[in-house]
Amino acid sequence: MKKLSYIILGFIIGAVLTYYFCPKSIDTETMETKVKTAEELVRPDGAIEQDYAQKLNKNWTEYREPAVDSAAQRQGREKDNRWTEWSLEELEEYLVYSQGMADLLGYKMNGVRVYLGVYGEDSGPKKKNLTTMFIVPRGKKKQEAASMIPFSFQNRNKNLPIDPLNDGNGGSGGYE
């Protein structure tokens, strides 16, 4: 009988831990209660107006598109990629993965960096020599709690040794 009580206790503890540590899906009702009105939203630093984003894109088209597209034409392409997109689910999944890997490797992830890249000759006919963008997690090495020196001049943000996110959908159209 004593062994049965341990088994039941184990199931109860397992159920409680599963409830708290397993990812929960977000439904729209939860999101609606989270964000009740537009007045409660705080615009993040760095957010820019739509008109300014269109101006930046227009400037890129004026100053960079001819050079970029002429390089693409030398490679046998009419136009190069101008943007890359990932779904919200892909980004959330990648950020959770990156933060988990950073913790396992002893880093504190505190941001991401977006890099431009170019697929090579061996990337297949759809991607051959096209521009791509990929996301790289950034952060610092965690400090030991018992350290004699609680800070380090060498411990600055750097790219973390975690696989970057690539393979977004790219295209050549302007800002829409």
Rank of each mutant, 00 (worst) to 15 (best):
A71E: 12
A71C: 05
A71F: 11
A72N: 05
Q73V: 09
Q73G: 04
R74M: 13
Q75D: 14
Q75G: 06
G76N: 07
R77M: 07
E78R: 11
E78A: 12
K79Q: 13
K79N: 11
D80G: 02
D80T: 07
N81Q: 05
N81G: 03
R82P: 00
W83E: 02
W83M: 03
T84P: 00
E85R: 14
W86L: 00
L88E: 15
E89H: 12
E90V: 10
E90D: 14
E90P: 00
L91Y: 06
E93A: 15
L95W: 07
V96Q: 06
V96C: 04
V96H: 07
Y97M: 08
Q99A: 14
Q99F: 11
Q99R: 15
G100H: 08
M101A: 10
D103K: 13
D103A: 13
L105S: 04
K108T: 11
K108A: 07
M109Y: 02
M109R: 01
M109V: 04
N110F: 04
V112W: 02
R113N: 05
L116F: 14
V118F: 10
Y119L: 03
Y119V: 00
G120R: 04
G120P: 00
G120M: 07
G124S: 00
P125C: 03
K126R: 14
K127T: 08
N129E: 09
L130D: 01
T131C: 00
T132D: 08
M133T: 08
V136R: 04
P137K: 04
R138A: 07
R138F: 12
K140E: 05
K142M: 09
K142L: 10
Q143M: 15
Q143D: 10
Q143F: 06
Q143G: 04
E144M: 07
E144A: 13
A146Y: 14
S147P: 01
S147L: 05
I149E: 08
F151V: 11
Q154P: 01
N155G: 00
N155C: 02
